[in-house]
Each structure stands twice: as C-alpha cells, then as structure tokens.
Simulated scan of single mutants.
Amino acid sequence: MSFKIDCESFSENIPTLTIELFGHYSIDGESYHADLSQMKYYIPPPDFDNVSFDLKNFTSTRSNLPSYIKLDDMLRWISENFNRLKKPLSAQGDQWLDIDFICRRGVLRTLLCTPYKKKDKWIICAAKYRGTIYLCEFYTNERERQHANKTAEEKFGSWGRKFEQYMVADQPSHKPDPSVPLNECAKFHCIFKANFGDHSLLYVAEIDGILSEQCITDTLIGKTFELIELKTMSMEQYNAIGTVGGKYDTIFVEKAISWWSQNYLAKVEKIICGLRKQWEVKAIKEYPTHNLLKLSKPCCNSDKCKMFCKMFLDNVKRIVIKDYSECMYKFYFDGSSDVINYSEIASNDETYHFFQSSFVHKAEYYNSTFQ
C-alpha cells in the first residue's frame, strides 16, 4: 500500500507551528533524572575570530552507541506527567491524552528535510494507543551498515561533542572545562507541546545549552533564557558558501535544511558554529535560524518542507486506526519518488518494536486509579 505527497504545488494554507516548552529531563549514561542535572550554560569565547579548540585529542568515558534512539526515556517522562497531558474525562471519547502525535524531534526533522534530501531513505513506525499515535524512526539497512562501520560521520559527531565542551559550563559564572573526559551519553532534553496546523504534537529534543545570566536549578518553565544549538563545519565549506556552482553547494543545502528544521522545531533563534581546519576550530560564526535557508544554493523553500510534514501526518492519521495490540504500521520512503509505502506489521515485531508494555501498564493503572 502507498500514498503520494506532492508538495511542489499545493493550494492548502501553510501550517503554522506554535510551541510551548512543557518539560525537561536529564540522561546520565543509562540513568534517567527528572531534573536539570545535565543542563549546560553557553559561555561564548571573548573573541570569535581567534580561538584554537583541539577536537581530536580527548578521552571518552562513554560513547553514543545506539544507531537510533527509541522512545523509552520520553515514555517514562510521560508516565510521570499523565495528569498534565490527559483530557478532562468528559472530553476524552476515544482519545485519552490531549495529543495527536508523540515522537522525538528527529522524526519531524526527517519529514521537514525530505523535500530537499530525497536521496535519504527512511523508516517511520507508528503505534496507536488510546487515540494517540506514537511515532519512532528506524534506520534502513543501508544506514545500519554505515553505523556499524566507524564512519567519518561518527568521528565528526564526537568532534561536535568535544566542541560543546569548549562552549558550555555547569554554571553561568564558570568557564568551560574541556579537560574532563567526554561522556557522549550525558544529555539534556526538553519536551515541547505544539500545534502544527490542525495536529497537536508532543516531542522531545536534545538541547546543547542555554544562555542565561542567572543560575536555574528547579525548572525552565516560566524562566527567561535562550536555547542554544552548537555545530561545527569545515573551513572549506564555509569559504565555499555563496559561490554559485561551488564544489560544496549541495552539501550546504543539506546542512542548511537540517540545521533550520532542528532549530525551527525548538524555537532556537541561532546556531553557534565552530569553523574547523581539519580537527581544530579556528573561529566561531553565528547563523540566525531565519537566514539559514536563504544561504543555501539553491535557496530552500520552508513552505514546501512544512507542507510535506503536514501531508504525511494527515495520511498517518487517516491510515493508523488499529490499536497497538492489533498491529503497528511501518512507513517507508525509498528516495526514488514522492511515494511513501506502508504496511501493517505485528505488534511484537522485534525489528521495529518500540512501544513499551510497561508504559501501557502504568497508563492503565493510572486510569483505573485516578480517573
């Protein structure tokens, strides 16, 4: 079975995204903490044009091994916040939570990027429980093979983590300390509740750091701060930007759409980019989010990205009607056309299983006890 998404010519209104920061949690290796313990503060260097950050020489206490991340930690956060997410009993009907779709930001980012990254194949699986659809992205066989072979992308990922150590600290009054061992599994996440067109969304995003003069210890909700996204890029790519027909134009188109979509989904206003010569960052460049797509050659159209994402969610809502206990749904994009194939798969399929039975037990217990 399949459906086609034509986002080249559309007559519908472009969906708008309204976002509310709804929660946060920390991951320290394998441990989950409902707090701000892994949150970092952005400490900009005094001179953006004169830095020397060595990204190559570091010791690592933990490496980020999983090829893709399921919903385990987010489902735990939801199970601890049922009271904030459930609909009033009189308004529930077939839908218990006041949310249409629950996922990681990466799922929505993949959808937003697809019109400009059509060579990238992807798999997104869906499970429906009490009226809400849970989405989880999985790697294709090609991506799994790439991940298994220590690719350059993995190395650059570690370099990006090391760059963060030069740019963030545990307190706003502290200086960054890049001498400490690099723990790639220590992460801070924010939960966002959003409306996208006529779809309600709840998704989690990893956050590199915040900009705040004040130390925040209890909650980010209601506080004044700015979310910060940190990236690295080679000097060669930076010097080639804006050169029509330049060698790196296509690469930067993919980078621009990827960076824009990531920031768009978390209301991050700018990217702080480390410009590296081989493994050493030599300068820092700021890219306002609203300018990212204008910098790409050719210029990207964000409306096309938003329409593709909306149309996909429209179709998923239409197709995913059976409960997770009956089946899950697999959506597959092979990059050869605008067609998305889908099929029903067994709810206990080991390859694509992501919806935890323990989460369902907690939800059913909550409903029987507190409703």
Score class of each variant (00 low, 15 high):
Asp177Phe: 04
Lys150Phe: 07
Ile210Glu: 10
Asp120Tyr: 01
Glu154Val: 03
Arg109Ile: 02
Arg145Tyr: 08
Lys223Phe: 03
Lys119Ala: 11
His174Cys: 11
Arg143Ile: 04
Arg109Tyr: 00
Asn195Glu: 13
Thr232Lys: 11
Asn149Ile: 09
Ile102Arg: 02
Leu97Trp: 02
Glu206Tyr: 04
Cys103Ile: 02
Arg130Ile: 01
Cys103Met: 15
Thr132Arg: 04
Ala152Asp: 12
Ile210Met: 13
Thr217Lys: 13
Leu111Thr: 08
Ala194Asp: 06
Thr140Ile: 06
Gln237Gly: 02
Phe163Trp: 04
Tyr116Ile: 05
Met233Pro: 04
Asp218Thr: 15
Lys223Trp: 01
Ile133Gly: 06
Leu182Pro: 06
Leu108Ser: 06
Thr219Arg: 08
Glu184Ser: 14
Gly131Pro: 06
Gly197Gln: 11
Leu108Cys: 08
Leu108Val: 02
Ala126Asn: 03
Asn183Ser: 14
Tyr134Arg: 04
Lys231Glu: 13
Gly157Ile: 00
Gln237His: 09
Leu230Asn: 05
Leu97Ala: 08
Gln165His: 11
Lys193Thr: 02
Gln171Asn: 15
Arg105Ser: 05
Leu202Asp: 02
Thr224Gly: 00
Pro172Cys: 07
Val168Leu: 10
Ile99Gln: 01
Lys118Glu: 06
Thr217Arg: 14
Val204Ala: 10
His147Ala: 15
Asn183Trp: 00
His174Phe: 14
Leu211Met: 10
Ile99Pro: 02
Ala205Leu: 04
Phe192Leu: 13
Met235Thr: 05
Glu154Arg: 14
Lys128Pro: 00
Gly160Pro: 05
Gly131Ser: 06
Asp208Met: 10
Asn239Ser: 13
Asp208Arg: 10
Asp198Ile: 11
Lys121Trp: 00
Ile221Thr: 08
Thr217Glu: 14
Cys215Pro: 00
Phe188Tyr: 15
Ile102Gln: 01
Ile228Cys: 09
Ile124Ser: 03
His147Pro: 00
Glu213Lys: 14
Thr219Tyr: 02
Glu184Pro: 06
Asp198Leu: 08
Pro115Val: 09
Ala169Val: 12
Gly106Ala: 12
Lys150Ser: 09
Val204Arg: 15
Gly209Ala: 15
Arg109Val: 12
Ser179Cys: 05
Lys155Ala: 07
Ile102His: 02
Ile133Asp: 07
Tyr238Lys: 12
Lys150Trp: 04
Asn239Pro: 00
Gly197Val: 09
Glu229Arg: 08
Asp170Gly: 14
Arg105Thr: 10
Ile191Met: 07
Gln146Trp: 06
Lys150Cys: 06
Trp159Glu: 13
Gly160Phe: 09
Tyr134Val: 03
Ile216Phe: 08
Leu227Phe: 11
Ala126Trp: 02
